[in-house]
Design a protein around this nucleic acid. Structure first.
Lengths: 341, 341
DNA sequence: GTGAAAGCGCTAACAG
DNA sequence: CTGTTAGCGCTTTCAC
C-alpha cells in the first residue's frame, strides 16, 4: 500500500504536487500531471480517505438512516441514493433503525456523531423530538425523504393529492361505493402519511357530494397480508359491499386483489382496486396505481445535498420542483358492473 | 464540536489520559476516569473517527458489496450484518452493484480501495476473476455470503442438500411427476446456485429410481412473474402435467401458486408446490418451503470478520458449523389427489 | 498512573 | 507552476 510519498518520489515531485495533480485542485503543468498520474497508476496508489478527511474536514461520505430495508419503497430510495452518491464520488454508510430501541439510540447517540459523514439522508423517519435535535445538532446538511421531519428539508409527494387522484379515478369510472384501506391509528403516531392519504380520499368524495362512510374504511399495516385481511372485512359486509377499494399502498392493494379472488369476486368486474406506489409487483398483478418514483427521490435527495456541500456547482431550479406522481391505469379498475349491464 | 483537547482541559489531564480513559486501553485511575468521562459527556465529545483511524490504522467500518437491494434475500442478509456490526461498534458502508458496468468498475477500482474499510462482506456475488483479485488485493479480511467466491471464505447453505430435501418431501408424499422450476442457463454463468439446486432435485429423483424428465424442467428468473410464466408452461402441458412443482425460490413458488389458481387448479389438491427460502410472503401464501436464514447468515459473516479483526476475542467453534436450513411444511403440499380417493 | 512528544498520510497556505 | 511547512485530531511509545 504505497503512500503519497512513494508516488512523489517516483514522479520526482513533492507530495504537494502529487496531491494537486490527483485532486485536480490547484495548477499543475500537463507534463508533471502526466508523470504523477503514471506513477500513481503504476504503484496502484489510492489516497487514504482518513488522512484526506482529517486534512480537509470533509469525508466524502454520507449517512443514510432508514427504518427498514426489506420494503420496496425504502430499498428503492436507498438504491437511488446510492447510485447518485457513487456518481459524485461519495460513499454511503447505512444506519438501519429496524433493530429497535437500543440500536436506535446507538445510532443517534454515537454513530451519527462520529464525524464520519458530511451529511445525512433520513428516509421516512418518524423521529422523536429528541432524535430530531440530535440530528440537527451535528450541524451538517440533512434532508428527509418521504417523511415529515420538523425542521428538516424534506422531499415527498403530496400525499393528499395522490390519494385524491386515485379516488377520483374510481369516482370518474362511476363508482359510488368506494372504500379505503389505510393506516391504522396506532401507526399514525406522528406519521402523517396515512392521515394525509385518507384526507385526500375524503376530499375526493366530498368534492362530488358523496358522504364519507366510516363503514367503508378499514385499517391495515401496509403489508399484503394486512391488505388481505382488511379487504375481506370490507367485502364480507353483506349489505354495503363496496364496488371499489382504494388502498393506501400497492402492497395492501395486492392483498385486496387476492382477497377478492378468494371470495369469488372478479377484479375488475365485481371490484375495482387501486393502490399507490407502482410497486414492482403492480404490473404483474395488473394493478392500477398512482406511481411515485422512490429511486428518483433518493437521487434528488443526493442532488440537494451536493448543492449544499458544494455551493459552487449548484444547479438551481431542479431542486425545488415538487415530486411528481402519475396515474397508471392497468386492469384492476373499470366501470362498476351495474353501470355496464 | 469539542476535540480531545477541550476534554483534557476540562478534566485537568493530558489528552493521552483522555484517550486512555475513553478507549479503555491502558491504565487510568478510577478517579480520573470518572472525571474524564464526566467532562466528555458534559461537552458532548465524540472522537473523530478519521483522526482515530489515521492514528490506529483501523477504521471500525466494513464494506458490504451487494448485487441488489430490493430482493428479500439480500435485504435480509444486509439487515443481519448491519445489526451485528452496530453491536460491535462498526459502521457499514454499502456498495450496491446494481447500477451496472460503470458503477461496478468504480466500486472495485476506487471505492473499496480507499482504505476506508477494515474488511468486506460480499453478498452473493458472481465476480469476474479480475474483480476477485481486486478484492483480495486490498489485503483485508473478506467473507462471502451465499455465493461461491473462489479464494474467499464463504458462508452458504448446501444448495444440493436443500433442494434434495424439498424434492424428497414431495416424493415422500407420493408424487411421481415432480417438476422443477430453476435458473435459466444464461444466469448460470458461473453462478452455481441454480445448478446445485437442480442437481439436488435430480439426485432425489434418482434416489427413488425416477427418471429425470427434461420436459418437467422450466427455467425462470427467480421472480414471482418468472415463476408464474414457467408454471403456466409446465401446467399447460395436456399429457404430462406434473402433480407437484419444486421451485428453486419462494418467489418462483408463489408465482407457481398464482398460475395454478389462474388455471383453475387447486393447491394442494391438484398441485403441490414447494420453494426455498421462507420468504416473508411464504406464510401468507401457505407455502411449504425449506427455510434458510439470511439475517442469521449476515450476522455470522460479521462474527467471522470480528474474529479475524480481533484475534484476541475469538470464540472458535461457532464459526465453522454449516449453515442450517429447515423444512417448513404449510398448506401448499399434500399427497397427490390420485392417491387419496 | 500520567504526561510529553512523535507521528498516522494527506492538504493548504505561503513562498518562491 | 511547484516545493516547504504547518497542521488536521487522535493514539501510543517512552519516560517520569
Amino acid at each position: 500500500m504505497p503512500g503519497i510519498n512513494e508516488v512523489a518520489l517516483a514522479a520526482g515531485v513533492s507530495t504537494a504536487t502529487v496531491s494537486r495533480a490527483l485532486s485536480g485542485k490547484g495548477h499543475v503543468s500537463a507534463a508533471t500531471r502526466e508523470r504523477v498520474l503514471a506513477a500513481a497508476m503504476e504503484l496502484g496508489y489510492v489516497v487514504s480517505s482518513n488522512a484526506s478527511s482529517l486534512a480537509t474536514g470533509r469525508t466524502k461520505n454520507v449517512g443514510v438512516v432508514i427504518p427498514f430495508l426489506n420494503r420496496w419503497f425504502y430499498g428503492s430510495v436507498l438504491e437511488g441514493a446510492e447510485q447518485a452518491l457513487l456518481g459524485h464520488g461519495y460513499d454511503l454508510t447505512l444506519y438501519n433503525l429496524s433493530g429497535g430501541g437500543e440500536n436506535r439510540r446507538a445510532v443517534f447517540e454515537h454513530f451519527l456523531l462520529r464525524k464520519r459523514v458530511d451529511a445525512v439522508i433520513a428516509i421516512s423517519l418518524e423521529l422523536t423530538p429528541e432524535e430530531v435535535s440530535r440530528l440537527l445538532e451535528i450541524d451538517k446538511p440533512v434532508v428527509g425523504v418521504g417523511g415529515p421531519l420538523p425542521g428538516v428539508r424534506t422531499l415527498s409527494i403530496d400525499d393528499v393529492e395522490v390519494a385524491r387522484l386515485a379516488t377520483e379515478h374510481l369516482l370518474s369510472l362511476g363508482h359510488r361505493k368506494v372504500a379505503h384501506i389505510g393506516g391504522n391509528v396506532e401507526m399514525e403516531h406522528d406519521f402523517h402519511l396515512p392521515t394525509n392519504r385518507r384526507a385526500g380520499y375524503e376530499a375526493a368524495l366530498e368534492a362530488v357530494g358523496l358522504p364519507v362512510d366510516p363503514a367503508l374504511f378499514a385499517p391495515a399495516d401496509f403489508t399484503i397480508e394486512g391488505g388481505y385481511r382488511a379487504a375481506k372485512q370490507l367485502l364480507g359486509n353483506p349489505r354495503n359491499r363496496p364496488t371499489a377499494i382504494f388502498a393506501a399502498s400497492d402492497e395492501m392493494a395486492i392483498g385486496t386483489m387476492l382477497a377478492a379472488r378468494d371470495m369469488g369476486l372478479r377484479v375488475p368486474q365485481d371490484l375495482s382496486v387501486i393502490g399507490i406506489d407502482d410497486h414492482e409487483l403492480a404490473e404483474f398483478f395488473g394493478l392500477s396505481t398512482v406511481a411515485q418514483f422512490p429511486a428518483e427521490q433518493g437521487r434528488r435527495a443526493v442532488e440537494i445535498l451536493m448543492d449544499q456541500l458544494h455551493p459552487a456547482t449548484r444547479e438551481l431550479g431542479s431542486v425545488d420542483t415538487p415530486l411528481h406522481f402519475e396515474l397508471v391505469v392497468r386492469s384492476s379498475t373499470s366501470r362498476p358492473e351495474a353501470e355496464r349491464r
